[in-house]
Design a protein around this nucleic acid. Structure first.
Length: 153
DNA sequence: GCCAACGTTGGC
DNA sequence: GCCAACGTTGGC
């Protein structure tokens, strides 16, 4: 089993939104970055655990835990000219973009903020989130980092 | 294959 | 809203 972190802007799609979805699941559509796509398409397995991270908001940080509910399949929004994430270069015969379904697991007792995570930079060496300028929306988390961060809760 | 221009992300 | 960092695009 592997561990991951996925970012979402709470004004677009928050952890509460995930909880309120039927079945508490949601297709993670709209990712248009190759590295993030590769993680979803090639490496994310059903049952993997995910830190749900709120970005671009007043208090950026990890708010809860989700799991991979369904492994990779082509992102249908890439084929829809009406969709904001439409990509004419993605052919249904040869899809360019993939996604996984994620499922709500549990909310953390409190938000573990980016600020706090940065204060533990010595223990979280090479944690991608705290590397300068990292903009990946899907990233792997090492188990030791996962455990350390959960220990802060 | 290089690299300048451009668009996006995301913290602050 | 600003802007640094970074990915992508496209001319050459």
């Amino acid at each position: 089993m592997q561990y991951w972190l996925m970012k979402s802007e709470p004004e677009e799609f928050s952890f509460e939104d995930l909880k309120n979805r039927p079945g508490k699941t949601e297709p993670w559509d709209g990712v248009r970055n190759y590295q993030a796509r590769n993680f979803m398409r090639d490496d994310m397995k059903k049952g993997d655990c995910i830190f749900f991270y709120h970005s671009n908001c007043a208090e950026p940080g990890i708010v809860g835990i989700a799991t991979v509910h369904k492994e990779a399949y082509p992102d249908p929004t890439a084929f829809d000219p009406e969709d904001a994430h439409y990509d004419p270069k993605s052919d249904p015969e040869k899809p360019r973009w993939y996604l996984v379904d994620v499922k709500y697991k549990k909310k953390l007792k409190r938000t573990i903020t980016l600020k706090e995570i940065k204060q533990h930079a010595d223990r979280l060496e090479d944690f991608p989130l705290v590397r300068k300028g990292n903009r990946l929306s899907v990233m792997p988390v090492e188990k030791k980092h996962w455990d350390f961060i959960l220990g802060l809760e």
